[in-house]
């Protein structure tokens, strides 16, 4: 199964890259932006055909390596 996960910075954590992207967008004329937060996206093809089990495996990966839970949250957004 292909499992997709996104990792985002927690609310209170400063995201300087997001800020610079916001400023650049603003300079390009995109004036309707409140805030930009940058994150990571993973697509992991696991050798497991049961969607629930596949999700569990990727959640375990997020807990142990892909995310640092002090500053980041993760969310499984798609299993197919």
């Amino acid at each position: 199964m292909k499992v997709s996960a996104i990792i985002t910075l927690k609310k209170d954590v400063l995201d300087p890259q997001g800020k610079v992207i916001h400023q650049t967008l603003d300079g390009m004329g995109f004036k309707d932006v409140n805030e930009v937060r940058q994150g990571k996206y993973f697509e992991i093809d696991v050798k497991e055909n049961d969607p629930k089990k596949a999700q569990k495996i990727v959640e375990d990966m997020c807990d142990k390596l892909l995310a640092n839970l002090v500053i980041e949250n993760y969310k499984i957004i798609e299993i197919q």
């Binding site: 400063l14 300087p16 002090v70 500053i71």
Partner: peptide
């Protein structure tokens, strides 16, 4: 404890 983030002024 803690983490090390990207420098504030990039």
């Amino acid at each position: 404890p803690g983490v090390l983030l990207r420098n504030k002024y990039l």
